[in-house]
Lab assay of single mutants.
Amino acid sequence: GATAVSEWTEYKTADGKTYYYNNRTLESTFEKPQELK
């Protein structure tokens, strides 16, 4: 079976905060997504 690849990509803001962006739902969040835990 195919492994589900996380759609979340980790980015940093200009002031160094980490956030996560989902390229399928176009959602962004500062909290670590469930799929990455």
Rank of each mutant, 00 (worst) to 15 (best):
T18G: 02
E27D: 04
S28D: 03
G16C: 06
K37R: 12
T25N: 02
K32N: 05
T3F: 09
T29E: 02
G16H: 02
F30M: 07
T25P: 02
F30P: 05
Y20H: 01
K32T: 08
S28A: 11
W8P: 00
A4L: 13
F30E: 08
L36Q: 05
T13R: 04
T25K: 01
E7N: 05
A4K: 05
Y20G: 00
K12G: 03
P33Q: 02
V5F: 12
K17N: 08
K32H: 05
V5D: 12
S28V: 15
S6N: 11
K32V: 09
Q34G: 10
E35I: 07
T9K: 09
L26M: 14
W8R: 00
E10S: 06
D15K: 04
Y21D: 03
Q34T: 12
G16E: 03
A4I: 13
T3W: 09
L36K: 03
K17Y: 09
E7H: 07
G1A: 15
T9G: 07
T29N: 03
A14D: 10
T29L: 05
V5W: 12
N23I: 09
N22M: 00
T29Y: 05
L26K: 15
G16D: 04
E10Y: 04
S6Y: 09
T3E: 13
K12M: 11
Q34L: 13
E10C: 03
Y19F: 11
E27R: 03
P33S: 02
L36Y: 12
Q34F: 11
Y21Q: 08
Y11E: 07
T18W: 05
R24Q: 15
T3G: 14
E35N: 09
K32I: 09
E27M: 08
W8F: 01
E10G: 01
T29S: 08
G1W: 15
N22L: 00
Y21L: 10
A14M: 10
R24G: 09
T29V: 09
Q34M: 10
Y21M: 08
A2Y: 11
T13N: 10
T18N: 04
K32R: 10
G16P: 00
Y20M: 01
L26A: 14
L36F: 13
G16W: 00
N22G: 00
Y19E: 04
T3I: 12
E7A: 06
K37H: 12
F30T: 10
A4E: 12
T29H: 04
E31Y: 06
Y19P: 01
F30K: 04
E35P: 08
T3N: 14
F30Q: 06
V5E: 13
T13F: 03
A14F: 05
L26E: 15
T3P: 12
N23E: 12
K17F: 07
T25I: 01
V5S: 14
V5L: 14
R24D: 10
G1Q: 13
T3A: 14
Y19M: 08
S28H: 10
Y11L: 15
P33L: 02
N23K: 09
N22P: 01
Y21I: 11
A2E: 13
Y11P: 00
D15H: 05
E31T: 11
A2V: 12
T3D: 13
T18D: 04
T9D: 05
T18L: 10
W8H: 00
N23H: 13
D15V: 03
T9A: 10
P33N: 02
T13L: 06
K32W: 04
P33G: 02
Y19N: 02
Y19Q: 04
N22H: 01
D15F: 05
S6A: 11
Y21N: 02
K17I: 14
T9E: 11
W8S: 00
K37I: 15
A14Y: 03
T25Q: 01
K12E: 07
A2W: 13
D15A: 07
T3H: 12
A14G: 07
A14Q: 10
N23G: 05
N23A: 08
K37V: 14
T9S: 13
N22T: 01
K32Q: 06
T18Y: 08
G16S: 02
A4P: 12
D15T: 07
N23P: 06
A2P: 12
V5T: 13
D15P: 00
P33C: 02
W8M: 01
G1Y: 12
A2I: 13
K37E: 14
A4H: 14
F30V: 07
L36N: 07
K32P: 06
Q34N: 13
D15Q: 05
T13V: 03
G1M: 13
T25Y: 02
E27F: 04
Q34V: 13
K37T: 13
T3C: 04
G1T: 13
Y21E: 06
K12L: 12
T29K: 05
P33M: 01
W8L: 01
S28Q: 11
K32S: 04
Y20Q: 00
K37Q: 15
T25M: 00
Y20W: 15
S28F: 15
A2G: 12
G16Q: 03
Q34K: 10
P33I: 01
R24E: 14
W8T: 00
N23W: 12
Y20P: 01
N22R: 00
A14E: 11
T9Q: 11
